[in-house]
């Protein structure tokens, strides 16, 4: 399959596909971080995670429309505002859903799965009713468009670089929060032993609500970043949810570093294979490899080694 390309062409193909793989990786990481917090830390399988992401995308769309009415100079900075708004709106909805639905189902994983799947259908229909079935796109300010020419055959899009930057920043922020803040310490304590966490003085219900809200908020930021590389429709979230679960399980549910490593592996494999094979063959190969590795290592790539 490499036969018809010259060596320098191949190098460029790998570089460009590698880069588009990195953009995919960034979206995966942003989606998977929220999911890893919720699934890895709380054991809740949130089937509506994709819809929280799309909520962030719609919020970004609304904010960009609102800024479109304002003077041109302000439009250039709509994106950071939209990202914060997406985090807050998705997080608030997350906190409400946790309070109204999830907390009643903590010891029933299958029921949470069904309930959040139902929630995802409700949200999708809600988006369809409010925003219409057609996909919407945001107009990006000029500085976010175009691409950087690295050589004659290699170009990288600026919005892609931005998405990557956001992914890196959010990953670092989540890592710091998990391992340096008292909230992170409480979350990790609750994950390991809910009863005991309560018995050392941690308000486990509050911790759960906050954790779910932060996970959903990060999904909202993912959605915000998503608007830069794709258009938003009511069911766009569905396209990513399976891949995202794959990333979280493959990475080892409780490990944020594992999540990042697995997002990287899967997105790169997919993106590079996609160029040479058809999209579905690329997916089949990636999935087979992941399934194979998971059969050998059911705990995922990264798991803590501890005395039992």
């Amino acid at each position: 399959m490499f036969g018809e390309y010259s060596l320098s062409e191949l190098a460029s193909i790998f570089a460009m596909q590698g880069f588009s793989g990195l953009i995919l990786f960034s979206v995966f990481v942003l989606m998977a971080l929220g999911l890893a917090i919720i699934y890895g830390q709380m054991g809740v399988i949130n089937m509506a995670h994709g819809e929280f992401m799309i909520l962030g995308a719609y919020v970004t769309y609304l904010v960009s429309r609102a800024f479109g009415e304002l003077p041109h100079a302000l439009f250039n900075v709509y994106f950071p505002v939209a990202m914060v708004a997406a985090f807050l709106v998705a997080g608030a909805l997350g906190a409400f859903v946790e309070w109204a639905l999830i907390r009643r189902l903590y010891r029933r994983p299958l029921d949470t799965l069904l309930a959040t799947w139902g929630l995802s259908l409700i949200l999708q229909q809600l988006y369809r009713t409010i925003f219409g079935a057609r996909e919407v796109g945001v107009t990006m300010p000029e500085w976010m468009m175009g691409s950087l020419k690295l050589s004659d055959t290699i170009e990288v899009p600026i919005n892609g670089i931005l998405v990557m930057g956001i992914a890196v920043a959010i990953s670092i922020a989540v890592g710091v929060m998990m391992h340096r803040s008292s909230w992170g310490r409480q979350v990790r304590a609750v994950v390991q032993n809910r009863t005991m966490a309560g018995a050392v003085g941690i308000d486990t219900e509050r911790t759960d609500r906050l954790t779910f809200a932060v996970g959903c908020g990060i999904a909202g930021v993912a959605g915000s970043a998503f608007t830069m590389i794709g258009s938003t429709g009511p069911s766009s979230g569905q396209l990513y949810i399976v891949d995202t679960f794959l990333v979280v399980v493959f990475g080892g549910a409780a490990s944020l570093l594992g999540t990042i490593a697995s997002a990287f592996t899967i997105s790169q494999a997919q993106s590079i294979l996609e160029f040479f094979l058809s999209g579905s063959m690329a997916k089949v190969l990636t999935l087979l490899t992941v399934v194979g590795i998971l059969m050998l290592r059911p705990q995922g790539l990264f798991a803590l080694k501890l005395r039992k």
């Binding site: 008292s182 409480q186 990790r188 304590a189």
Partner: peptide, 26 residues
């Protein structure tokens, strides 16, 4: 009230320092 349960039930994936700090919450 503070509680040291049977079987100790420390948070095994947290460091010793973090374990102690979980008790600081209140």
């Amino acid at each position: 009230v503070a509680y040291v349960p049977q079987g100790r039930m420390i948070f095994s994936a947290l460091t010793v320092q973090e374990n102690i700090e979980t008790g600081l919450t209140v």
